[in-house]
Amino acid sequence: MKYLLAFAVAWFLAVLNVSAMPYVQVLHVTPDVVLIFAACWTMVRGRDEGLIVVPIAALLRDLTTSDPLGTSLLAMAPLIPLAAVVRLRAMATDFLPTVALVAAGSFFYGVISTLVLAATGQTTPWDDAFLRVVLPAALVNSLFTPIVYLPVHWFSPGRKAWLVGSTRYTSA
């Protein structure tokens, strides 16, 4: 049931990503709500659910854009190991680690997408892609994280206080 819900939300956000979100341009980039959703779900609901939801979100994103199917799957894959790295540092909240995950995940997403574009023979202006797209996207996606994080957090059982996390790893 929870994966069905994740599928429905990811599909809606993927549609939103290509229809309404392009109107929202901050620093000349569009926030990627699908990536933010996948990162929030992984961080709030745990890695095991992330292993299922990240590929679902990635495939739905590719199906609604002109990217080759599989691009987002590759580009979002770092979310899972990054989530584990972010959780290594004990914090009393899930929110800040989620923002960090979104920023790092967006960066890797941009780099891998650019690599895929180059590998498929498309023109890739590396310097402009890095300075004008990859870095701004990491920042903008981080800024938009609360919009997706709060609903995901509220919907998760036992996590009503939005700043208090409960799934973190703690070091001894």
Partner: peptide, 26 residues
């Protein structure tokens, strides 16, 4: 270990998907 297998699977599926997309099979 589970994450490593997951990553390997995802990368493999992703690469296959990109190749198939480039060949217009999808």
């Amino acid at each position: 270990m589970r994450v490593i297998w997951w990553l390997a699977t995802v990368v493999a599926v992703g690469l296959v998907g990109i190749v198939l997309s480039e060949q217009r099979a999808l």
